[in-house]
Amino acid sequence: MTWSTVLDAAGGVCLLLGAFMCLAGAVGLVRFPDTLSRLHAATKPQTLGLILVLMGLSLTLRTWAAVTTLVFVGATQFFTSPVTAQLVGRSAYRHRNVRTDLLIVDELSEALARDGGADGDGDGDDARPPASPDAPGPLQP
């Protein structure tokens, strides 16, 4: 049992776990009922899965050149995936692509109603709040 065997095994386990996380995210994407829930599936398991795959890859390759590149790829994903998620979430909410019947509390539409639709940052994309909770959401299957 040499070091390289141990590292290879650890790397392989990381690769498998990472692939499983990607699969879990994909299953969530298909099974969750509305866009915002799917967003959760898109951000968390995907980021962890990618980090695990990159870790497995650097444990397998074991060169500094590879490790620095992989750290860079991981950091890019880490900083960018919340940005995309927020843009999509904001857009989905403002276009009423929300299953309001699945929401227990909705304080954003209360806040938007309170400010009369203006969202206070003056960027001109103010929107009306989504329909009231008893109205069926637009995504009723």
Partner: peptide
């Protein structure tokens, strides 16, 4: 938007 989320995941899968 669902398609956008899905293609985002697809690219992560391609990277993996």
């Amino acid at each position: 938007l669902d398609r956008l989320i899905a293609t985002d995941i697809l690219l992560v899968i391609v990277i993996a």
